[in-house]
Design a protein around this nucleic acid. Structure first.
Length: 470
DNA sequence: ATCGGAAGGC
DNA sequence: GCCTTCCGAT
């Protein structure tokens, strides 16, 4: 009766942020990567899963960001339900049940329904962000200002209560207290404590303009599988993303111009130093990735947002190897060394050769693809590993598939307008502000191209850490 | 289509 | 705790 869904077993963790060239590790606390950190369950949670789908271009025909920031549309309810059913080994999952689970999130304020719009829901980013910056004192942090930003300016205040936090990460001893951020280190300088504090605040480290790596969601995945990465790089090894340990970029890979925006971005950009400086290092962030403002600014504080696949702009990337639905558990794509996707996701490679677009499940099922079997490595349709409580289980996938309809949109990707409205000035200085050393404008040249710069960064990082610890 | 109560599984 | 399943109501 065991569910041996490979999706929950084989997928490697991925680093939170991926900074081409100037690599920087922004790892969340270990517990955040563990399936057990999901309350009451060691399995993936539905909202994780939804976010996971949302960030994959190949599923944009099924589910995609649309409308307001954080708003998404389930274009193919049956298909989403099917995928969810596969993931959870629930062959009889359907949209009715899935939507019930989504409704379950209403009370938890993780999601809410966009009334009047069919199959349209909206994430409450306060929740999502909190999950990733659990130690932030949202009540006193400028981050809070970002919250109302995502609630359409209306209605309810974000649920930033410690209780709410606990509901998501009950293991947190003292969620929501920024004080704990420092107390912990001062009193019990355990490695864990240090790690927790430092990792929780990427912007305390280097002010490097990080590019957000397409997130793996707070995952159902085990976080320490032996896994071979290309170029001899394993992002999950300690220090893998430290500045003197830059992963080599695959030949021909360039930084995509479409990294994730960050729902916090506009909020943070309105903040006083250090956030603003982190967002616009050197006062010029846009030239780095050759894009507009959204291009290079989302990484540094993009950890939480990116990790969770918050609304992409303008295009999201495939999850590659970490994409269970892409068949990670069923074997890597031929021709790709294992792990290419792992980094490729950050480089926009996993989606396929340049100029190509991964075919969405809907497209595939819809007959666009002639041979549905030929790309079975991209989609898990085999439920044989799942426990079965029904003799007709094998019909499930088929039936669901036949019900699915092709829903293609003219536009690619989940286009979302960047947040344009400005936030009110911060209510109070950020508690971390005084701890962050002023950083000079950063050169735009990625350290990967400049070893001496990398050394410089390393030194700076060290200094920063010293300051924090002192 | 959407909602939420209720019961039950894990 | 987080769904899954079922179902009546709107």
């Amino acid at each position: 009766m065991d569910c041996n869904c490979v999706s929950d077993l084989l997928l490697p963790p991925v680093p939170t942020l991926w900074t081409p060239g100037l690599t920087k590790s922004i790892a969340f606390p270990d517990w955040a990567y563990k399936p057990e950190s999901s309350p009451g369950s060691r399995q993936i949670q539905l909202w994780h899963f939804i976010l996971e789908l949302l960030q994959k271009e190949e599923y944009h025909g099924v589910i995609a960001w649309q409308g307001d920031y954080g708003e998404f549309v389930i274009k193919d309810p049956d298909e989403v339900a099917r995928l969810w059913g596969i993931r959870k080994c629930k062959p009889h999952m359907n949209y009715d049940k899935l939507s019930r689970a989504l409704r379950y999130y209403y009370n938890k304020r993780i999601l809410h329904k966009t009334k009047g719009k069919r199959f349209t829901y909206k994430f409450n980013f306060s929740k999502v962000v909190l999950v990733n910056y659990p130690l932030l004192d949202m009540a006193n942090s400028p981050f809070l200002l970002a919250q109302n930003h995502f609630t359409n300016g209306s209605s309810t205040a974000p649920d930033c209560s410690p209780e709410a936090l606990q509901s998501l990460f009950p293991r947190l001893p003292d969620s929501g207290r920024v004080a704990s951020l420092f107390d912990r280190g001062a009193t019990a300088p355990s490695p864990e404590g240090d790690k927790l504090r430092l990792d929780a605040f990427p912007f305390l480290s280097s002010g490097a303009p990080c590019y957000s790596k397409p997130p793996s969601l707070l995952g159902p995945y085990p976080r320490s599988p032996p896994f071979d990465y290309p170029w001899g790089f394993n992002p999950y090894l300690p220090g893998a993303f430290s500045l003197n340990n830059c992963p080599k970029l695959p030949p021909g890979s360039l930084y995509p111009s479409h990294f994730y925006p960050n729902p916090l971005q506009s909020s943070l950009s309105g903040l006083p130093h250090p956030f603003s400086s982190l967002l616009h290092p050197g006062g010029d962030a846009g030239d780095r990735a050759g894009t507009g403002p959204a291009g290079a600014t989302n990484g540094t504080v993009g950890g939480p947002a990116a990790r969770l696949g918050l609304p992409p702009y303008p295009v999201s990337m495939s999850m590659g190897r970490t994409d269970l639905l892409s068949g990670a558990g069923l074997g890597a794509r031929e021709g790709s060394p294992p792990g290419v996707g792992g980094l490729g996701i950050g480089l926009g490679l996993a989606a396929g050769p340049p100029g190509t677009r991964p075919q969405s499940p809907s497209e595939r099922r819809g007959g666009v693809k002639q041979d549905p079997e030929s790309d079975s490595d991209l989609e898990i349709t085999d439920l044989s590993d799942c426990s079965s409580d029904n003799e007709n289980d094998h019909e499930f996938s088929k039936a669901a598939r036949s019900r699915s309809q092709i829903i293609l949109e003219g536009k690619k990707g989940g286009m979302l307008p960047p947040l344009s409205s400005s936030l009110p000035p911060p209510m109070s200085p950020h508690p971390l502000k005084s701890l962050v050393p002023l950083t000079p404008p950063r050169p735009s040249l990625p350290p990967s191209l400049s070893p001496s710069l990398a050394l410089h960064e390393r030194h700076r990082e060290t200094e920063t850490l010293k300051m924090i610890h002192s």
